[in-house]
């Protein structure tokens, strides 16, 4: 009988934070997230340059005050824009991804800080911003296209991926905390008229139909409330069950988009940290091998036919 000795708790905790994950997953995340940043700058946090033109309502957030960041101006927001676009395009190729990454992380954080420095803060950027800070900590073995297939398992890659996963889940769990905190640490949110309130303020056809059926809104509130509380479980689920958890929350965002017109795409894209992206290249290679094998099987056959025809 062989009894496996469990490593001490400290080592197990450290191991949980630094699982061995293939470098290819980080390469894919770099490409997708750096390109997403470009999309984000035009579609979501898109008023940063405008705030450089009209800094009248600028109200710097804590981080901007701590680092004494200059007030947005046409010059600095335009520079920020150009630097971000160039660095994101370079980082997305996986050539010099760390240099590009260390430029993108502070630059995009500043970009978002300006975008949210006017009294309104969105809560969908936590995972994306943290992802940008952890990705450059991973040293890659291969550059360019070869990086997407690199199966070298790395604890540094695992840590970066884990951090993104934690932030995705934290977005939900901490939303639950906020819902309990807001009425003074009570559980009144799911039974309240919060969705009715939201729809009255942002009217649209789906919502206005739902206003006539408040019980449906209450059911949705309870489902969201309970799901957000249990969301951390997903960090420990594996395989199919984790996929189910991810799909549930993606559905949750679809519903939110329909009812509240809030998409949370910057969080949604970070769910990719849970996906085994490192399997994409081997999967394609296997398919190509199978196809080539079929071709070589067919070739001698056609060769023989050609010989027979030549001899005829």
């Amino acid at each position: 009988m062989s009894a496996t000795v469990k490593p001490p708790l400290g080592a197990r905790v450290a191991g949980w934070f630094t699982p061995k994950i293939a470098l290819a997953r980080v390469a894919w995340l770099r490409t997708v997230l750096y390109l997403f940043v470009i999309l984000d700058m035009h579609a979501f946090v898109r008023d940063t340059r405008l705030k450089g033109e009209h800094p009248g309502l600028y109200q710097p957030l804590l981080l901007a005050r701590i680092f004494d960041l200059p007030k947005p101006s046409v010059a600095n927001t335009t520079a920020l824009y150009v630097v971000l676009i160039v660095a994101c395009l370079i980082g997305a190729t996986n050539w010099f991804p760390r240099v590009a990454g260390w430029v993108i992380a502070p630059a995009f954080t500043w970009w978002v800080l300006i975008g949210m420095s006017d009294g309104k803060v969105d809560h969908d950027h936590l995972a994306l911003v943290i992802a940008l800070w952890v990705l450059p900590t991973v040293k890659s073995q291969k550059r360019g296209r070869a990086a997407f297939g690199d199966q070298t398992r790395s604890e540094a890659a695992g840590w970066a991926v884990r951090c993104v996963q934690i932030c995705v889940i934290a977005t939900y769990f901490l939303s639950w905390v906020a819902k309990v905190r807001s009425p003074g640490w009570k559980f009144t949110w799911p039974g309240s008229a919060v969705l009715t309130w939201a729809i009255v303020r942002r009217p649209h056809p789906v919502g206005e139909w739902l206003l006539h059926h408040p019980w449906m809104l209450h059911v949705m509130q309870w489902v969201g409330f309970i799901a957000e509380f249990f969301s951390p479980v997903i960090l420990w689920l594996k395989g199919k069950w984790q996929l189910l958890g991810a799909l549930f929350f993606l559905g949750f965002h679809v519903a939110n988009t329909a009812i509240l017109l809030i998409h949370f795409l910057p969080t949604v894209v970070c769910w990719l940290a849970f996906a085994p992206l490192e399997r994409i290249v081997p999967w394609f290679r296997k398919k190509r091998l199978a196809r080539d094998a079929r071709k070589t099987e067919e070739q001698p056959e056609s060769g023989r036919q050609a010989e027979q025809q030549a001899g005829a």
Partner: peptide
């Protein structure tokens, strides 16, 4: 805090 839509109405 993730306070978007967190208020009890």
């Amino acid at each position: 805090p993730m306070s978007q839509y967190a208020g009890s109405v």
